[in-house]
Computed example of a mutant assay.
Amino acid sequence: MTDPLFDEDDEANTPLTEEERAQLIPSYITLRRELNEAEQVNIAAGLKWVSGRKREVLDDAFLRELHKRMFGQVWQWAGQYRTTPRNIGIDAYRIAMEVRQLVDDVRYQVENATFPPDEIAVRFSHRLVSIHPFPNGNGRHSRMAGDLLAMQLGQRPFTWGSINLIDPSQTRRDYVAALQAADAHDIEKLLAFARS
């Protein structure tokens, strides 16, 4: 029997453990569509929160708080690094260390203008989503963090294909292909997609 809320039939959703699923906050949610809508409302609240303050994106505490602000009205585990294995991302025990290393590396890139600003922000977003630090919401979180870093570096936020990347679509497939190319050290497709 399938669960209409937690069906894992598309690549857009990271499978959650039973314990993670049990931490859904709104009790009215029974369908994937309702979950997506609740998360989108929460993400909008997170964007409002981050827009009203001076922020240092390159800080692991900020990145956890951003995730909490984006998903904390929907999931009890929001803002907490995952402790369970995933089919993507690194081992859970390495997450805190890898996020701190990412932040340090990107600070160095910014201070030394190692890459153009857009490329620094896209590389940051890609590496963050590759770590996959949270039970879910990693793509949306990493794209928002990339946008915030781009703005901190004097650039416009990215368009990321200009549509919802949660639902299956050709644009989502293009995004996944660009991520896979970046995984293979070809950042050009992801750079182009970020501004498409």
Score class of each variant (00 low, 15 high):
Glu8His: 09
Glu11Cys: 06
Ala12Val: 02
Pro15Val: 01
Ala22Val: 00
Gln23Ile: 01
Leu24Lys: 11
Ile25Gln: 07
Pro26Arg: 10
Leu31Pro: 00
Leu31Lys: 14
Glu34Cys: 05
Glu37Val: 11
Gln40Thr: 15
Val41Thr: 12
Trp49Cys: 08
Lys54Thr: 07
Lys54Gln: 14
Leu58Gln: 03
Asp60Thr: 09
Arg64Tyr: 01
Arg64Gly: 10
Met70Trp: 02
Met70Val: 09
Gly72Ser: 02
Gln76Ser: 14
Pro85Tyr: 03
Asp91Lys: 15
Ile95Lys: 09
Glu98Trp: 03
Gln101Val: 07
Asp104His: 10
Asp105Leu: 03
Val106Trp: 01
Arg107Ala: 04
Gln109His: 11
Val110Lys: 10
Glu111Asn: 09
Glu111Gln: 11
Ala113Arg: 14
Asp118Ser: 10
Glu119Phe: 01
Ile120Phe: 08
Arg127Cys: 02
Asn136Ile: 02
Gly139Pro: 04
Leu149Ser: 05
Met151Tyr: 06
Met151Asp: 01
Leu153Gly: 00
Pro157Arg: 08
Ser169Gly: 11
Gln170Pro: 08
Gln170Lys: 15
Arg172Ser: 08
Arg173Trp: 02
Ala177Asp: 11
Ala182Tyr: 09
Ala184Asn: 14
His185Cys: 14
Ile187Ser: 04
Lys189Leu: 11
Ala194Met: 08
Arg195Lys: 15
